[in-house]
């Protein structure tokens, strides 16, 4: 196999899948960095976002208008979920919140299935033929996925690094008591964290649906690679989640060279296992934004 077909058949699909994982993993890492718990409802929130876009597209909207609306709706949903299910547990042991988020995951999925049914859907019909860019074949939807991911990540990094609110978020993640004593409102920062996580997660759901199919279990199945990506990159680090997502995506696609394709989704699990046994302190050390 020559280099170009490796790039076209393994590397490009890997990077596209990785970009989607990265969007999910950044949300996981933000929630962990500020609130210190693993949010298991993240995948189903992505599903919810993907189906919201589907509903809006079904009502005649273009996907590029439907996506921002669905992202905003998912952000508000994430904030509401926090207030309904997680906020009152915040002073108790973190495992209670984690288990509670598992319950929220099941509820979100049930809501999706109740409203939209259990069938597999898609945003557009017809075949999206790849265009050639200097020999690298890229479908339009893949190009859009990569551009949107890049835009969202750059936007988030600028927000965290440059704005007063970004600093407040990093400060809260770094030292919550000191942040509160420095005049940073914990409730607002928490809401902001959930808002950002909701935005990114809905985008991840949409792009996953755009590149594969829209179905009620899509987000749940994405949860494992997303957590593997967040841990691989160092939990709490936005750049880490991006890197981890891309690596997991590429490794998954390339594994098909050696393993039967059915084992693809086990690869993220293997990476997660290796990471946890080689660097178990990565998660517990609780790195900060």
């Amino acid at each position: 196999m020559d280099l170009l077909s490796f790039v076209n058949f393994y590397l490009v699909p890997g990077i596209v899948a990785g970009a989607i994982y990265a969007l999910g993993a950044i949300g996981v890492t933000l929630v962990f960095g500020v609130l210190r718990f693993a949010h298991l409802a993240h995948g189903d929130l992505a599903t919810f976002g993907a189906f919201l876009v589907l509903a809006l597209v079904g009502a005649g909207m273009t996907p590029w208008l439907a996506l921002p609306l669905a992202m905003a709706a998912a952000a508000l949903t994430a904030i509401a979920l926090h207030h309904l299910f997680y906020a009152h547990l915040s002073r108790r042991s973190a495992i209670l919140t984690v288990i509670s988020s598992l319950g929220v995951a099941l509820m979100l999925r049930a809501v999706v299935q109740m409203i939209w049914g259990v069938d597999t859907e898609s945003y557009v019909s017809g075949i999206d033929r790849p265009q050639s860019y200097l020999g690298i074949r890229l479908k339009d939807r893949e190009l859009w996925t990569l551009l949107a991911t890049a835009g969202l990540v750059v936007g988030l990094l600028v927000f965290l690094g440059r704005t007063r609110w970004g600093k407040a978020l990093r400060a809260m993640s770094d030292n919550p008591d000191l942040a509160a004593l420095s005049g940073i409102d914990k409730r607002l920062t928490t809401a902001l964290t959930w808002g950002l996580a909701g935005l990114l997660t809905a985008a991840a759901g949409f792009f996953l649906g755009l590149n594969t199919e829209v179905k009620p279990l899509m987000g749940w199945h994405m949860l494992l690679p997303v957590f593997a990506a967040a841990i691989l990159g160092g939990v709490g680090r936005v750049e880490g989640a991006l890197l981890g997502g891309l690596l997991i995506g590429i490794v998954e696609e390339c594994s098909v060279l050696l393993l039967p394709a059915q084992y693809k989704s086990a690869v993220a699990f293997a990476v997660l296992l290796v990471m946890l046994s080689a660097r178990p302190s990565g998660l517990l050390r609780g790195k900060v934004l």
Binding site: R164, K167, A168, R170, A171, D174, N175, D177, L178, A179, S182, G183, I184, V288, L289
Partner: peptide
């Protein structure tokens, strides 16, 4: 107590009141 990963300058800026 300080914000470990924030720079010294950023640490001071976080403490500025009523922005």
């Amino acid at each position: 107590q300080e914000f470990h990963r924030l720079t010294v300058l950023e640490n001071l800026m976080v403490a500025a009141a009523a922005q």
